[in-house]
């Protein structure tokens, strides 16, 4: 990984974006219902990681521990809400 924090964040974001798209393509090629739901959960987890990277590296919250903690807790709770809503039809 690059040493520059911005370049590192951008590289990680690109890898996560490609990962999400690759999973979606795999989903398109036909998977069982359980695998489909699991893939969706992974895609949501990857988007949570992408959002954290943008907040910390691009928006500079890495240098503001108080605000970073607040945003991370809120974002994690929101990601859990989306995950719960996504999984609801499968339960």
């Amino acid at each position: 990984m690059p040493r520059d924090p911005l370049l590192r964040a951008w590289t990680a974001l690109i890898v996560l974006c490609l990962g999400s798209t690759a999973i979606a393509v795999a989903v398109g090629s036909g998977l069982s219902k359980t695998a489909l739901t699991a893939a969706g959960a992974v895609i949501l987890t990857l988007s949570w990681l992408k959002a954290r990277l943008i907040l910390n590296a691009y928006l500079g919250l890495a240098a503001a521990p108080f605000w970073r903690k607040g945003f991370e807790i809120t974002l994690a709770l929101y990601a859990l809400l989306l995950l719960g809503l996504y999984l609801s039809p499968a339960i």
Binding site: L13, C17, S20, T21, I23, A24, V27, L36, A39, G40, I43, L44, L46, S47, K50, A51, I54, L55, Y58, L59, L82, Y86
Partner: peptide, 22 residues
């Protein structure tokens, strides 16, 4: 640029929810 990053942040959540979740 903070506004621009917010636009970016919204898209990385919006994209998978609308386009990828099955």
């Amino acid at each position: 640029t903070a506004f621009w990053h917010m636009v970016d942040l919204v898209w990385v959540i919006l994209f998978p929810v609308l386009y990828l979740l099955r």
